[in-house]
Write a protein that binds this DNA or RNA. Structure first.
Length: 567
DNA sequence: CCTGCCGGGTA
DNA sequence: TACCCGGCAGG
């Protein structure tokens, strides 16, 4: 996190330091993920957008990095654009000290905001920038603008205040971020005016306790950091994205929805959260970052899906790649994008007879929800059930088909042989092929939902033997037609192979087999004939006799099915 | 009745 | 989980 933030600093610093770099570059710099950790980044230049190290970094840095500032700056650009830059330049020109960027900012702030400015946080600067632009000259603005500026500052404070609280809220609010930016711009205007009154009051308070304000500022700045970058990126697509975002945000999951009521809060909260959790500097990027963290390389379908679901869910109900792409455009983009870099991540539907592969979790979830779960109407609602029916597939550069083929090809024996894999959600999913693979694996087990496999278990530890031995190998016993599996093979594997739905206790030989049978293929026959036919071969007891009980296999000792002499 | 071992109890 | 055992049931 810090690293990224720090990384950004340089860019920011360049921006500020450079006096007035082109807006576009700035945005790009902000928006772009930090190239690498640069703790040493010039402290003065810019602060990291992320709040995480609130306490750690110098107050100033935090302030500078404050999202508000960035955001404001962005807005200014949007609204005023050149005007702002001009102002900035003018500033520099006006103020000789230009040498030290921070100083400059600080001073400005001081000038602008009385109390708040004390630290010289950039917040003020932001405020100044934002509000100042309106007026041709700062001086003019200050008089009248001052109020406005303060308002801005207060507003920020308020915002971050929320953030601090919001932090508590889950990342689910992140979606709000999206909204926020949009809302921010608009809200900023409206809200600011509305809040102006409050702000005034707050201002009074601020004067009372400077310390408090400072703290707030820090917080705010830290919280605010994120938005700006995001915003910058958004600016580019604002027109297009805005509408989409709004729609998506509206359609987002409940969690997401709630925030919208208070865009500021939600935004701040989400940002803040994003910052600490993820390295992303801006809210926008934060999205990508979180996803990475959650499922960095190997996406674990359940967790990752769940955690991110909220975000993705917003995507339109459309099914298929189109939808995925759309979602990418909006906010999901970061995730896929990142993955795409080194490897391509696809989401494959595990539903039987359905091999649908989408490039976004949201897409696959929707697909499952709509097509398999029949929840067309509840596009935005997901209880997480979908997670069980799709898996992530990573493809280095291979085509999806290849990836699928590689995964699917598991031979029945293999799949059976490696029961341990089943327990693991990921592996199980990946292994259990949905449509294509199913043809081969379409055993009774596989037919049922993948989860069925989990049910399989060994009755007794002693019975369950180490998987090492040939799990799948079934051998025909002398006895006759029936085959028995090596005792070592775990029941699970065992069941899988021979068990034909219809036929079950083949007769005598495989005691364990039968046992497993009952467990696995319970449906057909209840637990009626659980009792094994009874092994015919010699058992430890017979072989060694009671005298040598110590020589018996443990199973025999425990009066369990003999492991040593299997029929 | 012998034997195998299931199902359940105990530590 | 490891161990033990009552008791069922096939032979």
């Amino acid at each position: 996190m810090q690293a990224r933030r720090l990384a950004k600093r340089p860019s920011l610093g360049s921006r500020r330091g450079g006096a007035a770099p082109a807006p576009t570059p700035e945005a790009a710099a902000l928006g772009l993920p930090p190239p690498g950790p640069s703790p040493g980044a010039a402290p003065g230049s810019w602060r990291p957008p992320l709040p995480p190290p609130r306490g750690t970094g110098p107050p100033r840095a935090a302030a500078a990095s404050s999202p508000v500032l960035l955001l404001l700056g962005e807005e200014d650009e949007d609204e005023e654009g050149a005007g702002r830059r001009r102002r900035a330049r003018g500033r520099l020109a006006e103020k000789p000290r230009g040498g030290a960027e921070e100083d400059d900012d600080d001073e400005e702030e001081d000038e602008e905001v009385v109390v708040e400015v004390v630290d010289g946080d950039e917040d003020e600067e932001d405020a100044e920038e934002r509000f100042v632009p309106l007026g041709p000259g700062r001086a003019l603005l200050r008089g009248p603008a001052r109020g406005a500026v303060k308002v801005g500052g207060f507003k920020r404070e308020m915002t971050f205040t929320f953030q601090s609280e919001d932090l508590k809220h889950d990342s689910s609010k992140k979606p709000s971020h999206h909204m926020f930016p949009l809302a921010m711009e608009e809200d900023m205007k409206t809200v600011d005016t509305k809040k102006a009154n409050r702000i005034l009051d707050q201002e009074k308070e601020n004067t009372r306790s400077i310390c408090l304000l400072e703290q707030k500022r820090k917080v705010v700045s830290s919280n605010i950091d994120v938005p700006p970058a995001r915003k910058s990126s958004e600016e580019l697509d604002m027109d297009k994205v805005t509408a989409a975002m709004v729609l998506t945000s509206l359609s987002t999951s409940p969690l997401v929805r709630s925030p919208p009521v208070r865009p500021n809060e939600g935004l701040s909260g989400s940002w803040k959260e994003g910052a600490p959790s993820s390295s992303s500097s801006s809210g926008y990027w934060s999205w990508s970052a979180p996803s990475d963290q959650s499922n960095p390389s190997t996406p674990s379908p359940p967790l990752s899906a769940d955690s991110f679901k909220p975000f993705r869910s917003p995507a339109p109900p459309d099914d298929g790649i189109d939808e995925a792409e759309a979602s990418n455009l909006l906010f999901d983009e970061p995730i896929p994008r990142k993955r795409k870099n080194s490897m391509k991540v696809m989401f494959k539907c595990l539903w039987k007879n359905c091999g649908k592969v989408l490039n976004t979790a949201a897409g696959i979830q929707k697909h499952i929800r709509a097509i398999h779960l029949g929840r067309v109407g509840e596009s935005d609602y997901s209880d997480g059930e979908e997670d069980f029916y799709y898996t992530e597939i990573k493809l280095n550069t291979d085509s999806v088909a290849e990836g699928l083929s590689s995964m699917a090809p598991l031979s029945p024996s293999q799949s059976l042989a490696s029961p341990p894999t089943f327990p693991v959600p990921d592996s199980s999913r990946t292994e259990t092929p949905c449509a294509k693979t199913d043809t081969k694996l379409m055993t009774p087990l596989s037919r049922s939902a993948p989860t069925t496999l989990y049910l399989v278990h060994t009755d007794h530890a002693y019975q369950a033997t180490p998987p090492v031995t040939i799990p799948g190998s079934a051998k025909f016993t002398p006895n006759g037609s029936s085959f028995s599996i090596s005792w070592q093979s775990p029941p699970v594997t065992f069941t899988g192979i021979p068990v034909s739905p219809t036929h079950h206790h083949p007769v005598g030989s495989g005691e364990q087999r039968q046992h497993a049978h009952t467990v696995l293929s319970s449906p057909p026959r209840g637990t009626v004939s659980l009792r094994k036919p009874r092994g015919e071969g010699k058992k430890c007891r017979k072989v060694y006799g009671m005298e040598n009980r110590d020589m018996w296999c443990t199973a025999c000792r425990w009066k369990k099915a003999c492991q040593r002499f299997i029929d």
